[in-house]
Design a binder for these strands. Sequence first.
DNA 1: AGGAAAATGTTGAATATTCAACGATTCCCG
DNA 2: CGGGAATCGTTGAATATTCAACATTTTCCT
Lengths: 145, 145
Amino acid sequence: MAKTPSTPITDHLAYLLAQANREINRQLDARFKKEGVPVEQWRILKVLSDGKGHSMGDLAEAVLLNHPTLTKMVDRMVSDALVYRVQDPDDRRKVVMFMSDRGKTLTHRLNALALSQEAHIAENYGNKATADLKRLLESLIEKAN
Amino acid sequence: MAKTPSTPITDHLAYLLAQANREINRQLDARFKKEGVPVEQWRILKVLSDGKGHSMGDLAEAVLLNHPTLTKMVDRMVSDALVYRVQDPDDRRKVVMFMSDRGKTLTHRLNALALSQEAHIAENYGNKATADLKRLLESLIEKAN
DNA sequence: AGGAAAATGTTGAATATTCAACGATTCCCG
DNA sequence: CGGGAATCGTTGAATATTCAACATTTTCCT
């Protein structure tokens, strides 16, 4: 009378996603290390790159952080003079975030590091596999909502 | 003279992985909510399901947590009488973790919830897409090491 | 054998995240 | 118009995670 074996955890999509995410994120973080910037801050900077202002709500959504966490992270970035807040004149509840010049030059350096990681992945994982994976992930994200 | 547009953040594999992981994890957490157990604890229980003892080091690796975080999470699980520690007689530095009966019955309930999530995903994402995605993720993880 | 180095797990302090509640503003609709 | 409900962002307390240092035990080297 055997125990029910149940599927190993490595068969679960949730686990594979967590594992892959952790690994890729760790590698990216290692590259950002010398700039002393966590991945989340790069995401924020990247979203602000378009020069249009973004509200905290927009940002939180875009960078996958919940509101209080974002507020405190932005506080740190303001201290580091990477970004700044402006009150939205059209809706005074809102805050509009912009990037400083210092933030812009940092963003360029971070983008280069991120692109080099992408290149490295594409290189020994394959262009096709990378493209396929991205497509599947996009589709999953879309369906999940 | 246009600004360099730079690739949007949604093009980066690292971002897509983070987004997909967050979404799937959130859904799973919602299902576990009524049991009051975070996903990480389910992972621990699942790994311990084989009845063989696992050292803290093994566990940390398997459940994607670093050592101090795992120690404290296991402390909580010991308080909840889900797992218990035994000193390894062969190597007295080591601790071997086991699951209690209470842990076992909880694990069954959690497994059912997790499987129902997998079924739900497969249903409106497609069996083929799910299988392809899993395969690509496994391969990425392998290559990344 | 003996002692330096490595491995294992835990601890305490520093840091970061989350939750609930709040203050301010705007929206809605009777 | 007026006032209750919703939205937006922040705050403070509670919780969780991380980092560095540590104690213990084992391994390795000579």
